[in-house]
Nucleic acid binder design. Structure first.
Length: 158
DNA sequence: GCCAACGTTGGC
DNA sequence: GCCAACGTTGGC
């Protein structure tokens, strides 16, 4: 797949967070936050592909009923994640050089928190969403969502 | 809290 | 460069 074309098409993403660490309510309070701590190359590459204005679903993971709970918007494109250089951070990476940072983050802005989240169980039940990366590659914390999938999700969430 | 699935590391 | 061992993620 050609990267440029792929980037043109992908306007929706899904980003996971454990609510105990960072929740949709935390984002609502802060309004704008860096999405730090991503330490997986595939996820990082997705962060690098994000463009200002892209929309991202906020997903709460590792809870009893994992679900899409909100929507956010990319307001700053990828830049080095400072936590990789912070030896006191849980995200510290001793192998990352300041001159050649390994990990990146984007800034996101709160758009909305949904009164009725769409759970992974809901998604699994929906045949038209069966090819979502969420179901195919459950460990990827930053993932693309197709336009068709996004439209279906947005309809369910409204 | 368990454990399957997956990613990374490092010895050879 | 293979692959066993290990570590992490995340649904259940």
């Amino acid at each position: 797949m050609k990267r440029e074309i792929y980037n043109e098409l992908v306007r929706y993403w899904l980003m996971k967070s454990e609510p105990d660490t960072f929740s949709i309510q935390d984002l609502k309070t802060r309004q704008i936050s860096g999405w730090d701590g991503v330490r997986n190359y595939q996820a990082r590459n997705h962060l690098r592909s994000m463009r200002i204005g892209d929309q991202a679903f906020f997903y709460h993971s590792r809870i009893a009923a994992p679900a899409i709970v909100g929507l956010m918007e990319v307001v700053k494109e990828a830049y080095p994640d400072p936590s990789q250089f912070d030896s006191k951070s849980q995200y510290f990476d001793v192998k990352s050089e300041i001159s050649d940072p390994r990990w990146q983050q984007v800034d996101v802005r709160f758009v909305k928190a949904y009164a009725r989240p769409v759970s992974i169980e809901d998604i699994r039940r929906e045949a038209s969403l069966k090819s979502m990366v969420l179901l195919q590659n459950s460990r990827l914390s930053v993932q693309p969502v197709s336009e068709v999938e996004a439209e279906i999700l947005l309809r369910k969430l409204s």
